[in-house]
């Protein structure tokens, strides 16, 4: 017997032409049951008072509860550069402290005052060196280069000073020489300020 059934139609049942197209929507709406849905595009009936949204502001007493941030930013790459800069500075400090023995003195030590006196003497010498041109004949001018390094070292040893003290005074005098207008002399520093220059101590609050 010749089977003339269509391979896609191997059963006797028939369905509406668009059945499968609408099946999905039909099933979904059945699953959702009796839920009420507003048709799309339908607005709600609520209206804000005139100007309310424009003037909306947080209540002041809740303002801080939000966890407000700050507006500050660091430039790009700043923190990487900072590390390099700080480490370079600490490296210099470390090298300096290794090459120069630390001066260990007590603030109440009488010897310290002797050192201050010695510093003032040295500063006087260098004041002459830097400012003495108008007072001293050129040929009689006191020159640092005229001093032999052994003489400087023996003076420091004799006065119980270290080279750091010596260079400190030189740098001080150089600064003053640059800023001639202010007419500042090392003699104008107080004893305490001079002590700080030699043996700077951080305040107790650290």
């Amino acid at each position: 017997m010749k089977d003339n059934k269509n391979p896609n139609n191997q059963h006797p049942f028939q369905i509406d032409k668009n059945y499968f197209d609408s099946l999905e929507n039909t099933l979904l709406s059945k699953v959702k049951g009796d839920m009420y849905h507003l048709p799309l595009g339908l607005s709600h009936p609520f209206i804000a008072p005139d100007g309310y949204l424009e003037n909306f502001d947080l209540k002041k007493d809740t303002f801080l509860e939000l966890g407000v941030g700050h507006p500050y930013q660091a430039p790009n790459g700043y923190f990487e550069q900072l590390e390099t800069k700080v480490l370079a500075r600490t490296d210099v400090i470390s090298k300096e402290s290794k090459s120069t023995p630390k001066l260990q003195v007590s603030w109440r030590n009488y010897a310290m005052y002797a050192r201050i006196a010695a510093l003032v003497v040295i500063s006087g010498l260098f004041s002459l060196y830097f400012y003495g041109n108008s007072l001293v004949e050129q040929k009689e001018e006191l020159s640092l280069s005229a001093l032999h390094s052994d003489e400087i070292l023996s003076y420091l040893e004799e006065e119980n000073l270290v080279f750091e003290d010596f260079t400190e005074v030189i740098s001080l005098e150089t600064d003053f020489a640059i800023d001639q207008d202010q007419k500042v002399g090392i003699q104008e520093f107080t004893e305490d300020e001079l002590l700080e220059l030699i043996d700077f101590q951080f305040p107790n609050e650290i």
């Binding site: 660091a74 800069k85 500075r89 600490t90 951080f202 650290i206």
Partner: peptide, 24 residues
């Protein structure tokens, strides 16, 4: 930064603070 506001001032102060930390 929240105390001195300006970035360049903050940079100066921060470097000094780290030097102080290092020394202490």
């Amino acid at each position: 930064r929240k105390i001195v506001i300006d970035h360049d001032d903050t940079d100066d102060v921060l470097q000094e603070a780290f030097i102080k930390i290092w020394r202490n």
